[in-house]
Amino acid sequence: MTFSLVARCAETAMFGVAISSSSPAVAARCAHARSGVGAVASQNVTDPRLGPMALDLMSAGAGAAAAIAELQRRGSFMEYRQVLAVDREGGSAIHSGANSLGIWAQAQARDVAAGGNLLANDGVPAAMVAAFLGSSGHLGDRLLVALRAGLEAGGEAGPVHSAGLLVVGEQPWPLVDLRCDWTEDCPIAAVEKAWEIYKPQMEDYVLRALDPRRAPSYGVPGDE
């Protein structure tokens, strides 16, 4: 009931996740990323513990493939889980358990991995990977281009209701964490709109944290 991708920007070393689902609040449970370490999506019959576990393993030096292999050994009910990972070197790996729901598929390349379950067809992840690799610009833009490509390739078998975009940069907190937790309209379009608004202000919020003396105006009534 989810399709997603995890990715690394080779130029900036940013990591990110883009995800959408028919379930509510998918990004809150399934999207995980850590500055300087990697990105992970844990989905299908979700175990949110798998994301931090994989990131801890990669932080300790494991590559994406080794981290996924360790999850397969240590995780519970892994036959129900689908986990995607990308590491600091651009290595990618995927686990899709035998009990993944409905039509499930996966695709990967250097710097990117995509997967989904209860899909309309098995070509959705490959379309996402191709769109990501064919894109340019900020990692947030590229992730959303790929997520949109997945939707246009068929997406889920039914309508999606939630979506999210998570990006980490140099700081220990998320550079971008945008979500649509439920809508009867298109949640991907909602996240795209939020990104359109947030992107021009994004670096200002980092500056406000690091040095508020140099921060620009907040641009709200009463702020001079």
Rank of each mutant, 00 (worst) to 15 (best):
V6D: 01
A7W: 00
E11G: 07
M14L: 03
F15K: 03
F15L: 04
V17I: 09
I19D: 01
S21I: 08
S23E: 06
A25G: 03
A27N: 08
C30L: 03
A31Y: 00
H32M: 08
A33F: 03
S35D: 09
A39L: 08
V40A: 05
S42V: 09
Q43C: 11
V45H: 11
R49K: 13
G51I: 04
P52R: 04
L57Q: 11
L57T: 09
M58Q: 10
A60S: 15
G61S: 12
A64Y: 09
A66Q: 15
A67M: 11
A69C: 12
A69H: 09
E70C: 10
E70Q: 14
E70R: 12
Q72P: 00
R73E: 15
F77M: 08
E79T: 09
Q82A: 04
Q82M: 11
L84F: 06
V86Q: 01
G91H: 02
G91S: 12
S92L: 11
A98I: 13
S100F: 03
S100A: 15
L101Q: 11
A109T: 03
A113G: 04
A114Q: 04
G115T: 04
L119Q: 01
N121S: 13
D122N: 11
P125H: 03
A127W: 05
L133S: 07
L133N: 03
L133R: 11
G137M: 05
G137F: 09
G140C: 06
D141V: 08
D141L: 08
L143K: 00
V145N: 06
V145A: 08
L147Q: 02
A149M: 09
A149N: 08
G154D: 03
G154P: 07
G158C: 10
P159K: 13
P159H: 12
V160N: 10
A163R: 00
L166R: 00
Q171K: 11
Q171D: 11
L175V: 08
D177H: 10
L178F: 13
W182T: 01
P187M: 12
W195S: 04
I197M: 12
M202P: 10
Y205W: 15
D211S: 15
D211H: 14
D211F: 12
A215V: 14
P216R: 14
Y218S: 14
P221A: 15
D223A: 15
D223W: 05
E224W: 06
